[in-house]
Every structure is written in C-alpha cells, then in structure tokens.
C-alpha cells in the first residue's frame, strides 16, 4: 500500500511539474475551453428559445464541464502512451516492478486530481459569465462522481491498451472526443438503455443534482446500482483489454515501436 501511495505521489508530482513547465500549453487549453463555451453561450442567447434560455445554459454548463473532464481523463491517457513511446520512456515504465497498469492507474488518478482543480475553476467561471448559479451540493455530487470516474478510468484503460499496440492512434483520439461529447450531451430520456453506456447515467444524475436540486437521499437505489454496475463493468473491461494489449505488445515486440 505504501508503494502504491509513493507511486501515486510520484506520478501526481510529475504531471503537476509538466503542467507547470508546459504552462503556455496549459493556458491555451483553458482559454480554448472558455472561448468554445462562450460561443455556445452566445449561441443560446442569440438563436435559442428565450423561454428556455436559462435551463439550456445550465445544461450546457454541466454537459460541457463533464465532457471536458471525460476528454481529459480518457483522451489524455492515450496521448500519454503515444508521447512516452515517442520519447523512449514507455519501455522504462514497463520495466517497473510495480507493473505498467499500476503506473497508468496512478496517472489516471493524478490527471483527474489536477484537472479537477481546473474544472472547478472553469465551472465557477462559466457560472459567473452566464449568471446561472448551479446547485453545488458536494455531498450529493461526490459519490456519484466517484462511481462515474471509475467507469471513465475503464475507458481510459481501453484507450491506453489500444495505444500501446497501435501507437499511431491520433486520428482515433480526435474522433473519440466527439464520441465523448455525444455520451455527455445525450439526454437519458432518449432511451433507458443509454444508462448502461459509460458515464451517461452519472452525467444524468449530476445534472439532476446541479440543475434540479436533487439530493443524495432522493436518488433511487436502482440508479446507484446501475452506476455501481457500470463502474465495475467498465473498469474490469478496461483492465482486461489493457492486459491483453500489453501481452500482445510484449509478444510482438511493439512496446518501443512508434
């Protein structure tokens, strides 16, 4: 457990240092996020139905923030694998007695923690810009968010595994951001089966909490069961695919190839 913790600390520190060292890049990312958000907000103001402007803006804030979170967690792990292979450090990571899957887990957690800080800032900035103050009920949001994040980690492992084998997956990662957008923006009312896709249920519940003021005790147990099922299912699926891809890469000698 101590070794796990040291691994997590080392990766969080590294991610933080790199975010600082690549500060222009980090700032550009935040500005891009904010300007796209402004574009959507103005779109609602200009061409949206005046009667539902407020609710639409609130939906956009929650969906867009969630998409950014999913995008950062899931996509960034794919980019990290590609970058590590290009740098020549991927093999070094794979030689750690902790196992590359543990390193990737710490990277996912570290990325989530660091981006969570940025996301909270962006959330308040978005609310301030639009004048739409959402219900930030931490006690209700955190349990839902943790279960949702676990299913995102599962997706992250799938992307990391595919990247380890194929490496040149940049085009796929570009497409993935639209898939993630679809998963976060789609309303669950379209089909109940969508609840079994990764993090769709989670986003729906967070929307309920932040927009409709639903509290933790008001969330039906069935919804939590679905969230829990999704978290376990996608995490296990992600790990299974990751281990399989790692083995394929180690059998075919693809670990260092780019």
């Amino acid at each position: 457990m101590v070794r796990w913790l040291n691994l997590l600390k080392a990766n969080t520190r590294k991610e933080y240092i790199e975010l600082k060292r690549y500060l222009p890049n980090t700032l550009a990312m935040l500005f891009t996020f904010y300007f796209i958000f402004l574009g959507m907000f103005l779109g609602i103001q200009v061409i949206g139905d005046p009667g539902s402007q407020d609710i639409n803006t609130q939906h956009v804030i929650v969906n867009y923030i969630f998409w950014f979170l999913a995008f950062m967690i899931i996509n960034s792990i794919g980019w990290e694998v590609i970058n590590e292979a290009m740098r020549g450090t991927l093999e070094q990571l794979n030689m750690s007695p902790m196992g590359i899957w543990r390193i990737m887990t710490s990277r996912l957690i570290a990325t989530t923690l660091l981006y969570a800080v940025m996301i909270v800032f962006l959330l308040y900035l978005s609310m301030f810009t639009t004048g739409q103050w959402l219900n930030i009920d931490i006690v209700s949001i955190i349990p839902v968010l943790i279960l949702t994040l676990i299913s995102m980690f599962g997706m992250g492992f799938i992307i990391a595994g595919i990247s380890i084998v194929l490496k040149q997956v940049q085009a796929f990662l570009q497409i993935l951001q639209f898939i993630l957008a679809a998963l976060t923006f789609v309303p669950l009312s379209l089909s109940p089966l969508l609840a079994y896709l990764p993090f769709v249920k989670g986003v729906d519940l967070v929307r309920d909490i932040m927009i409709n003021g639903v509290t933790l005790t008001q969330i039906p147990a069935g919804d939590f069961l679905i969230l829990g099922f999704n978290a376990i299912f996608y995490l296990l699926l992600g790990l299974g695919i990751f281990f399989y891809c790692e083995r394929v890469a180690m059998s075919k000698g693809l670990m260092a190839h780019y």
């Binding site: 796990w4 040291n6 520190r13």
Partner: peptide, 17 residues
C-alpha cells in the same frame, strides 16, 4: 522537461520508493 533530480525521484517513485 524534468530536472536531473526530478528524473531520479520520478523513476524511484515508479518503483514504489
């Protein structure tokens, strides 16, 4: 993009130290 010491510390961390 890491310093000499940061590299040493990071790789040690990856082995659980």
């Amino acid at each position: 993009r890491l310093t000499v010491r940061e590299n040493l510390e990071y790789f040690a961390g990856n082995r659980g130290f």
